[in-house]
Amino acid sequence: MSQNKFKLVECPRDAMQGLHDFIPTELKTAYLNLLLQVGFDTLDFGSFVSPKAIPQMADTPEVLANLDLRNTSTKLLAIVANLRGVEEAIKYEQISYLGFPFSISETFQQRNTNSSIDQSLTTVEEMLSLCAKHNKTAVVYLSMGFGNPYGDEWNYEIVEKWADTLVGKGVTMLSLADTVGVSTPEKIKDILPKLISGFSNTEIGIHLHSTPNERFEKIEAAYNSGVKRIDSALKGFGGCPMAADDLTGNIATEDVISFLNSKGADLNLNMDKWNEAINLSAKIFS
């Protein structure tokens, strides 16, 4: 990857999943089809989790059937939370990446996937095996990677231990995920360079949640730490419905674009389609 080349991962799934009112499948699809034309590296578009847990994503197969992938280089990522979800997602040739939230907080792993950390590690092993057989790549999120609100023990050594374990199992793409907005620029600058240098053959990304007034500081800290893969969502919509009720949102994609443009990064985005997506988002997130 060239020095200035960034992988931008747009996360409409994360933005939409916590909305109470169901978004019509046609509207979801229209929004995703616009985002597919912008030029992001990856679109985190849907999930194969229990409809009882995330009813908003129950129509992911229908949405997928109506996505126009003819004129886009953007790859599709779907979130899974257990082996059943993996087995469902790998059936779809259009999907390149399966994302799994591997929490280093035992409390959150139970809340989010109804399984323990050890059980989730077994799921990751089975997911890696199935991905290899079906030409998919696993993206594992180190969820609660900057701390947690439950009082579970957290420090850098715990982050490193689980990163080392997952890489040892064959994970090639790790994303350090904040989930509840407890990351700080100081934590980012402390943790990310160590992970990036310590796991030089692994793609290390970042998935941050933030209040609006802290976004730029966190983006700058991640950039200065050497990260080349950043998750974000248009206007900073969304958050994790399993984490808390008083949620901070995602990092806003427009802030990431603005910051990286100021650094001369090679983004090559279709801003006309981006602006169309912003306009259409008003119908979804009103």
Rank of each mutant, 00 (worst) to 15 (best):
S225M: 03
D255Q: 12
A221T: 10
G239T: 00
L234P: 03
P241V: 10
A243I: 07
G249T: 06
D255H: 12
I219H: 04
V227N: 05
E217W: 02
V227G: 02
F259R: 04
E220T: 09
T248C: 14
G249N: 05
E217D: 15
I219C: 12
E217S: 15
F216D: 14
C240T: 07
G236K: 01
V227W: 02
V227Y: 03
R215Y: 05
N250G: 07
C240P: 03
A221H: 06
V256R: 03
E220C: 08
S225I: 07
L234T: 02
D245L: 12
N213L: 06
A233M: 00
Y223R: 06
C240I: 09
D245N: 13
G236C: 05
D231T: 02
G239K: 00
R229M: 14
G236A: 02
G249A: 02
E254S: 04
T248H: 02
I219Y: 06
R215S: 15
D231Y: 11
M242T: 14
I219E: 04
T253Q: 09
A222I: 10
P241H: 08
Y223G: 06
F259S: 09
L234S: 01
G226Y: 08
K228G: 07
D246C: 07
N224S: 10
A233S: 15
L247C: 11
I219S: 07
E220V: 11
